[in-house]
Design a protein around this nucleic acid. Structure first.
Length: 372
DNA sequence: AACTCGTGGTT
DNA sequence: TAACCAAGAGT
């Protein structure tokens, strides 16, 4: 076939044997490897998207304690699914997962589809996740090409296609298919990823410890450090914000829910505004609170903290102020509320606003100790 | 195809 | 420190 003509293929059977044997001996003991229940495999794969294993472990365990069955998660409300995802990032993952799980319960009798075309229709399930679930949960020989696999295969097969270009994933899928270990697709896919995570790492790969070293074209030529080829860089935006931790007469705090689409969708936050390029139409936080929420407030002249928060594609600098309501006429609704600290604990906040809250708490504590 | 979408750890 | 990276998908 064309593939084997262009690419220097290793001896497939020997390669598979070396790879699978290594995986059986060296694989990590991870919570989602205790069984191959499709629901658990699915949840773990979504959590692991662009996220480190060590970060995911506690989230995965908490998730399954709270939602042990596919039905229990399907019945959950959005507030609680965001709360369990709080701090994990990429929050649309959990909203898509929730939507997809409800779909499975409603239309597939609670059984995760084992057909590629069907599972790919589900929200949040792309080519990687489809391959991972099909192979790990059902033993179907479908490739699961993630960043690890592209890196590993680019080295073993000396593929110089730019992995930052979406279209090149097809090449790697074809290669993974050509190398697929039919008796155990689950172990084959997981072994490639595990190899990428433990041995064939992005920088300074441990080639001397590699179980498939003798099959690796990059190692043979000594070019493993130059692969994979990955171009694209990011352009980061910088936003400056001012935020307000505002208490009413009862000591409750004003919070609002972010819009249902876009960055940090539907998470709660302290009211805030951008200060650039202009601070209009509100000159101050006091005017902002009055104009937007009809709240008459007294805001401290100095901010109590400056929070820096870095996202993948943008950066926030937040000056946080505190204040008290003088005359509240605010009408609360679904997206704007006064809540106690205890009630806040039930809601999901982005990490940037958790930083503000922590700073506020220590600020208040410091003020209190200073009075004595 | 390029851009958006989080967070924490490494280099 | 800034850039890069980690079991990607939606638009």
């Amino acid at each position: 076939m064309a593939l084997t003509e262009r690419i220097n293929m290793p001896k497939v059977e020997e390669f598979q044997q070396d790879l699978i044997s290594w995986f059986e001996a060296e694989q990590r003991d991870l919570p989602w490897r205790k069984d191959n229940d499709p629901y658990k495999v699915w949840v773990s794969e979504i959590m692991l998207q662009q996220t480190r294993v060590e970060t995911v472990i506690p989230y995965f365990q908490r998730f399954l304690e709270k939602f042990p069955t596919i039905e229990s998660f399907a019945e959950a409300d959005e507030e609680s699914i965001l709360k369990i995802w709080e701090g994990l990032g990429y929050y649309s993952r959990v909203r898509n997962l929730h939507s997809a799980i409800k779909e499975v319960v409603a239309n597939y009798g609670g059984k995760v589809p084992d057909q590629k075309e069907e599972i790919l229709k589900l929200k949040g399930v792309g080519p990687y996740t489809a391959g991972a679930v099909l192979s790990i949960a059902y033993g179907i020989p479908e490739p699961a090409v993630d960043g690890n696999v592209m890196r590993v295969l680019s080295r073993i097969l000396l593929i110089t296609e730019d992995i930052a270009v979406p279209a090149s994933r097809k090449t790697f899928e074809a290669c993974a298919r050509a190398l697929m270990f039919e008796p155990n697709p689950s172990y084959f896919n997981q072994a490639l990823m595990e190899l990428g995570a433990l041995v064939c790492t992005p920088t300074s790969p441990a080639c001397l410890l590699c179980p498939v070293q003798k099959h690796c074209s990059a190692f043979e030529k000594g070019v493993q450090d130059q692969l994979p080829v990955k171009t694209r860089k990011k352009n980061t935006r910088h936003d400056e914000l001012v935020a307000i931790v505002l208490q009413n007469e009862k000591g409750e705090f004003l919070i609002r829910k972010r819009p249902g689409k876009g960055l940090l969708a539907n998470l709660w936050e302290f009211p805030n505004i951008e200060t650039r390029p202009v601070l209009e139409p509100y000159e101050t936080l006091q005017d902002f609170l009055m104009t937007k929420y009809s709240v008459d407030a007294e805001v401290t002249p100095e901010s109590f903290t400056m929070v820096h928060h870095v996202f993948t594609h943008l950066r926030w600098t937040i000056s946080a102020f505190s204040g008290k309501v003088v005359n509240g006429r605010l009408e609360e609704d679904e997206r704007i509320r006064f809540v106690t600290e205890e009630e806040m604990g039930e809601l999901a906040f982005p990490v940037s606003h958790q930083k503000i809250w922590q700073a506020y708490k220590s600020h208040v504590k410091y003020e209190r100790e200073n009075e004595r």
